[in-house]
Each structure stands twice: as C-alpha cells, then as structure tokens.
Write a protein that binds this DNA or RNA. Structure first.
Lengths: 360, 360
DNA sequence: TGCGACGTTGACTACGTAGTCAACCGTCAG
DNA sequence: CTGACGGTTGACTACGTAGTCAACGTCGCA
C-alpha cells in the first residue's frame, strides 16, 4: 500500500551514467547541460518512471509551491465562484491549491482552518470570506502573504482609498458589493418604492456587512429611515421564512435580498401570500446566479465579475510571494446591476409622479 | 518575503536543554518522555513559536498526509456537494485536501489534473466525476489508493454487484443515480404520460450516462421507445434552449432533466411557450438543490445523500491508505424521489384510465 | 602555440525530521 | 548487596533534493 515513491534521482543518475546533480539540472530545466546528456537522462527518467519528490524539494529550497485557501463553504455561489476562479488563475502558475473549509462562522473556526493550512507550509494564504469582526485577532505567521476577498471591515466602498486592515501587507480585492447593493436599492427607490426592506445574509460574514452598508447608504441618501434588518443564512429556506415574517407588516412593497437564493425563497413567500412579483412586491437579489435569469420571474440582481477579481487577486498574490509586491494592495472591481422582471413600480405608483427609471 | 520557517527542532532542543530527538518525541506525542521534560519542551516550543516542517517530516516518513481530489467544477451542485462532504469527512482525520479542477471534459484534461495532484505526493486520490469512457487509459501510480464517486461505466444500478473497474483496487461509491433517474421517469409514466423526454447533462460525464441509463431502463420496462436524447451542459440556459427545441415537437407532456438547474431552464421555456407547469407539461429534475423546493413551481426531483456517501467513501479511502482496506469496495446509496408540484397527469389523462399514483 | 574565458560536470553538503540503537538511570528481586 | 530489567534520553544517520564550488575540457584569440 502506498509506497508510491521508490525511484530517486540517484537511481536515474546511475542508469544514465551521470551524477545526481546533473539529473537535478535536467529535471529543473537548468542550462549548461549538453543536449546528448539531457536526452540520455530523459530516457532514464522515462524508463524508471521517476517522479521528483516534492517533500525533498520543498525541504531544500525552503519554500513550497502551495497556496492555502480558506472558504466558508464550497456550495454557496460566491465562495464556489471564488474557489473556481482562484483554481483557474493558479493553473499553470506552478502553485498547488490546498483547501480548508471553516466549520462555523466564529473567529475560532476561521483560525482553525488557517492553522490547518499553515501546518502545510503554504507560501500564500487566501481568505475567501474574511470574518467581519472588530479586532481580527488572527494568528498568521509573520511574512506570510495574505489575500482577502473583501475587506473584513465593511467598506465605505466606491472610495478606492484603503481602509487600514489588520496586516499592513495584506492584499484585499473584491467586487464593490457595497456599491452594487446600493445601486439595487436605488433602483427600487427610483421605481417609486417608499422604502426597501433588506434580508441580510449570515451574520458575521463580511459580505453580509458590505451589502447591508450599501442598503443603508442608499436609504440614507434618499432620506429614508432604514426599516428593521432581518437576517437569513443565504439559503432559499431562510429567505422564505424571513419574507413570511416580513410580509406580516403592512406596506411592504420592495425587498432586497442579500443573495439570489434568499430572493428565490422570498418570491415563493410572496406568491404563497397571494401576492404577485413584481406587481405587488418587488424583489431584488445579489449574485446573478445562473438560474436567476431563468426563474419564472427572472430576477433583478447584482453581478460580480468573479473571474476578473480572482485573476487579478491571484496575480498579485503570486507576485507578492515571489518578491514582486504590487504597488496597489487594495482594489474594488465594479459590480453591475442587472434589471429583470422581478422589480417594478409599487402598486399605487401610477397614481404618483412617474418614477424616473435609472440604470447602474 | 515568505521565509516562513526559521525555528527548527534543534533550536527548541537547545532552548529546552534536551536533544532534538526528544523534541521530536514531544511533538509527536510519543511515550517514554518524563512529564517534566515534556513541559519544558512545550514551553520552549511556545516561546520560539516552533512549527514542525511538513516537508522534512514527509521526507523522512516517506508518506504524505495529503488527499488529492479532482473535480470538474466547484460551482455545479453535485461536485460542490462532494467537495464539501469530502472536506468535512477529512477534517480531524489528519489528512489535508488538495484540489485540482479539470479544465475540459476530455481524458487529457482529467489526466492533467491527476498528474498535478500526483506531483504533490498524495497518499490518496479522489475522482469526483470519473469520465465515462470505454477504456479509461488513465496513468495513475501503482499502489495509489483511488476513490471514484460513481463508476466510470454507466452502471446497471440496483444490482449491488460490482462491475469491473479499470483498477481492481479502486473504491467506487455513490448514490444510485440510475435507480433515482428510473424512479423519476416511472413516476411520470405512472401519472399517465405516454413517454418522457430527457434533457441529458454534459456529454462524457459518467453522471450523465447513469441518469440516461435510468431513463432508458424505465421506458424500456414500460415498453415505450425512448425518444431522441438531447444534451445540455448542466446550466439553466442549456436546459432552456434544449426545451425550446423540444417543445417544437408535438405531444411533449413530460420532461426529465438531468439536474435541477436544467429543469429550471426548461420550466422557463415551457412558460414562455404559453404552457403551464405541470398542467400542460410536467418537469422533473435531479439533485434536490436547495432552491428546488422554493421555486414558483416547486420541483419534483431526486435527492442524493451526499453527506452519507462522502462520509462512507472517505472512511474507506483512509482505511485503504492506512492498510485497512474495506472488504466491500463498491457501494451504492439509494437516491430518493421527491415529488413536488412540477409533475402532474398529462392534459388529457382524465379522459383515460385514472393513473395509478406511485411513490418511490 | 599558449593562455584565458566560459561552458559543462560532479563531489560535497545542508535542509529538518524520525528511526535505530546504545547508554544511562532507577527500581526491584534474588 | 548485586544483577537484571524496564523506562528514559541522546548520538547518529537516512530521507531526496538543490546550492556551492571546484575541476575539467574546449574554444577563441593573441
């Protein structure tokens, strides 16, 4: 069982009639090796089925070609997209990807996942969802490059100026979710809704905080007091249950859900209450998940360009690892409002001034 | 940048006034160490912030605590659930998880992902989605334990007897998707539909083949000739487009989509054609994705118990790695038909004999 | 023809850990 | 009181690779 490694460079060297060091040169594609010898070594490698021992290599070079990634989930849309994007961006870079999923939403859970990765001698650390906490007392080895998708502090958005993060050398990239959320709420207000209710994501997630921040900012700009906040956990069920609660209040005409799945649950709740989307209640989501466009009521939502964000982020992380730190450590990519059929003027809007339509 | 590792066991040993070997004993929790010395070493470890060097350990023990997993995607429901389940099952086992995503659906793509993992000295290999090919000419190091979720050969299902796989020692576990698909189609036939059309998943995936097999089996048992097969790529869009095509034919009353997302697209297509689900056209999916229950038309679908499958599979894989191979190498977990509101008798069924309702 | 420069090759060694084995200690039975 | 034994500790070494540096050979130029 399992004794996978048997053939070493010395075996190849003996077979090819050269030194171990020469085999090393061939394997690593170093110059200063005669073509004839290179071919001979290659042949010996093939014959013996030699594969370099990664552990020995890591030991002697004192560095690992491994990136560790902490993710809160692999099945939620955002984290899954980030994981996929990071993997894509890493392919061909020479770095391997190690994944650790957090088991809960607390600091201890995040720390446990980080520790597991750090124990693997990673060259860089990716935090898919940095927890939203006052003082992120995370123990991360000094000098280990860190990339976070989204700042742990709910950003003031659009301002590209950086808020200080816990680690001065931390890379922070992401879509501008705050501005994206803001544009969704502004869209609803522009349609004529008096106010917009928000179904927040899981408490403690920075993404939750950013979307709440955008929601509050839009309401504040419009001079509207924010109604009580409700929290779900990103699942359709939680969106459904929160919306059922919400619909007990009078005059609810617009709901902004923190993600598309909660929006789907909310639509169901509205319909079960005998109301129609969007005629009676408008609903907007966040993510532009693939199914959003194909729901019976296609969903107005906010799209993030995960491919671009992850590509740029990984590029900068690898640069930092290899001693070429980017000049700019923080970057927000614009998010895009996608207006579909789940949002419309409120029932009595036609009796008021015609609402100015507005695109993000 | 990045010189993460500085403190070695010898440093700790000097600090604690013991030998490096004793530090090694303490770190690994070996017996035969006086409590006083153990405490002294622990203190020195804390003070110096020592962390064991994984590469050196792997080099000398000749084995890695790493499981490599190949997945075709991290955002599709099934693969994401498998990834999440494997990660959960691995937590606390002492093994780390390395992920490689295939870039395409060909053998070469799968092989490339496998090679990348093998280069990392993995102790075990997990294939989330074994490609469906006649002769899987995959190069996998001899003696490396392999776990596949679902056989690469579209199984005859229910029979728990194993079909021969490429590697005699390969572990093959999964939900009985063939039986699950069969039960969905039988459900539709029992409702009175003359036939059931199938929107298949991405060609080349074994999951696609298994669901097709179940579909064909159910039709065959009912003495119905299978209508032409259509293929999508698991996305709602592909389900939508396939259904638009399909609805050009006359007399289409029942569609079984290979996953819930394609079913969502199909529902949209039906509704856009001016027809109703389920009154005019019944639609069933596969996966029981979280949103399936909360769609405007809650979806009849098939649920796999990914948690159970992955837990069992990882348990057996780890056992195999550690020299305790399970007696049983193949196992199918039953899949469960979930009947909701997207399926009903066909439009004219009431004019015929009342259809016998049937549960799986 | 002679000399230096440069390209090629290999011997030696370090990297940090765990396995092997011997030395040492105290205890207990004879 | 002495020898044996078991528990504790450390010296030495191997693991497989890449870095360092020296030796060697060849070529071009003076």
């Amino acid at each position: 069982m399992g004794a996978t490694q048997r053939v070493a460079m010395t075996d190849v060297a003996r077979r090819a009639g050269v030194s171990q060091k020469t085999v090393s040169r061939v394997v690593n594609g170093e110059p200063h090796v005669t073509e004839a010898i290179r071919a001979k070594v290659q042949a010996a490698i093939e014959e013996l089925g030699f594969r370099p021992n990664a552990a020995a290599r890591a030991l002697v070079t004192r560095r690992n070609q491994r990136i560790g990634m902490v993710t809160p989930s692999t099945s939620l849309y955002g984290p899954a997209q980030i994981l996929e994007g990071v993997d894509s961006a890493l392919r061909g870079s020479g770095y391997h990807l190690s994944v650790a999923r957090t088991r809960g939403n607390g600091v201890a859970d995040l720390q446990a996942a980080i520790d597991e990765l750090v124990a693997q001698d990673i060259a860089g650390l990716v935090l898919s969802e940095p927890i939203d906490l006052g003082q992120p007392q995370l123990r991360i080895p000094h000098g280990l490059p860190v990339l976070s998708f989204g700042s742990p502090k709910a950003g003031s958005s659009t301002s590209s100026t950086t808020e200080a993060s816990a680690r001065p050398d931390e890379l922070v990239l992401g879509a501008d979710e705050t501005a994206g959320a803001r544009s969704a709420v502004e869209h609803l207000l522009a349609l004529g809704h008096h106010t917009v209710h928000h179904l927040g994501g899981t408490e403690g997630w920075s993404a939750t905080a950013r979307r709440i921040a955008g929601w509050r900012a839009a309401l504040s700009d419009a001079g509207v007091e924010a109604p009580p906040l409700m929290h779900g956990d990103w699942t359709p069920r939680s969106g459904y249950e929160a919306a059922v609660d919400l619909l007990r209040r009078a005059g609810v005409t617009a709901i902004f859900a923190a993600n598309d799945h909660m929006a789907i649950g909310a639509i169901r709740a509205v319909e079960q209450a005998g109301l129609r989307v969007p005629e009676d209640v408008s609903i907007a989501g966040f993510d532009d998940a693939p199914e959003a466009e194909f729901l019976s009521t296609p969903l107005t939502t906010v799209r993030q360009d995960f491919a671009e964000v992850t590509r740029l982020a990984v590029h900068r992380l690898v640069g930092t690892i290899e001693g070429r730190p980017p000049a700019e450590r923080h970057r927000l990519i614009p998010a895009q409002l996608i207006v579909r059929e789940s949002t419309a003027p409120p029932p009595s809007a036609t009796h008021r001034a015609s609402p100015p339509e507005r695109q993000a």
